[in-house]
């Protein structure tokens, strides 16, 4: 009997460690991403685009996949970061990393200020407020043409070498490496966040806010924090876009960007961080391929894909992530499928 009580605690520790372990496919993914620098040197620009979109999607995943907040205006933070970085480079410091941090900070402050809007009400009011905030920002940019260049965009953004050492080259190699490092850093930080007790509380709030409150969790504070963090990351994604293209257009705040990033997350699957990355890869390749076939009308196909995904069922579309061996998504997908089946039986 005396040896027995230790067994469950050892089992618990093993289970907890297993959930946090770096999976083989995670490591493989990053190796591939790095290898791309050498394998596809002529595709650096599109790879950069993917990395930036992935970063934006990861930030959305934190609030949608983990905290369960539906946002129709995530582009607000992206655009704000893009313009902040642009204006910062134009009027203050041209060094990119400083600009990146500045943009993240601005966006984060804005995220903190607007996070209180998503606390109250239903999905619908959240949709409306996030959408409204994004539209509001777009309108501000539009009306302050003297500062932002209005509809023509902000041009003349000069970026000096990163940390004064690495100059942006014509082929976008530096840009890709820079974006990839930021993406890796953000995913690493996010990974720590979601695997911490705090991350666990987010998952709990999303799944059952009533019970979460009955465990002494104040859902509002937790949501404010993650919303702010997501805003910081989204702002950084925007800054990367500005710095790698030396240009900001109002397109950074456009509605379709909020919709695109939702689609990215839907393709890749929400709630396990890597959905944003995989989704960004698929989405960008798909869009490029479609726009080659039908240059102007790829929007049609994107729309069709959205509808098909929803009609087939998001769960089913993203089931492939469960194939990733030993992944948390694997286990969660199994549980989710069982939960769905149980719910269907009950209904």
């Amino acid at each position: 009997m005396s040896g027995e009580p230790a067994a469950p605690s050892g089992q618990a520790a093993a289970l907890l460690r297993r959930a946090e372990r770096w999976q083989l496919w995670e490591i493989a993914l990053w190796i591939i991403a790095v290898a791309m620098i050498f394998v596809m040197p002529s595709h650096m620009l599109i790879l950069t685009e993917i990395a930036i979109l992935a970063l934006l999607a990861v930030s959305l995943d934190l609030i949608l996949g983990y905290a369960g907040i539906v946002s129709l205006g995530h582009a607000a933070f992206f655009g704000l970061g893009a313009y902040s970085a642009g204006l910062f480079a134009k009027f203050a410091i041209t060094e990119p990393v400083t600009g990146l941090l500045f943009a993240g900070a601005v966006s984060g402050v804005f995220g903190l200020a607007t996070s209180f809007l998503v606390l109250r009400g239903s999905d619908l009011t959240r949709l409306m407020t996030t959408f409204g905030v994004a539209m509001l920002l777009a309108e501000v940019v539009n009306q302050t043409g003297w500062l932002t260049g209005g509809a023509d965009g902000l041009s003349g953004v000069t970026v000096t070498p990163i940390l004064g050492l690495f100059e942006f080259d014509l082929w976008g190699r530096t840009g890709y490496i820079y974006s990839l490092i930021v993406l890796m850093a953000v995913v690493f930080i996010s990974r720590r966040i979601v695997n911490s007790p705090y991350g666990l509380s987010l998952k709990a709030i999303k799944r059952n806010p009533t019970r979460a409150a009955m465990l002494g969790i104040s859902p509002n504070r937790r949501i404010v924090v993650i919303y702010t963090i997501a805003a910081v990351f989204a702002g950084m994604a925007g800054a990367l876009l500005t710095q790698t293209t030396s240009f900001v257009s109002p397109d950074a705040l456009a509605f379709h960007r909020s919709a695109d990033v939702l689609l990215v997350l839907v393709i890749g699957g929400a709630g396990y961080l890597y959905g944003g990355i995989l989704g960004a890869v698929i989405f960008t390749i798909l869009r490029d391929w479609l726009s080659v076939i039908t240059p102007q009308y790829w929007m049609f196909w994107i729309g069709l894909i959205l509808i098909v995904i929803v009609m087939v069922g998001r769960e089913r579309v993203t089931r492939w992530q469960a194939l990733l061996p030993g992944s948390a998504a694997n286990r969660e997908a199994k549980a989710r499928a069982a939960a769905l089946a149980a719910a269907r039986d009950a209904a």
């Binding site: 539906v70 919709a259 839907v266 049609f300 994107i302 729309g303 069709l304 959205l306 509808i307």
Partner: peptide, 10 residues
């Protein structure tokens, strides 16, 4: 939302 955005795009 996703479905109706898809319709809008189309």
């Amino acid at each position: 939302v996703l479905f109706s955005i898809g319709l809008v795009f189309m």
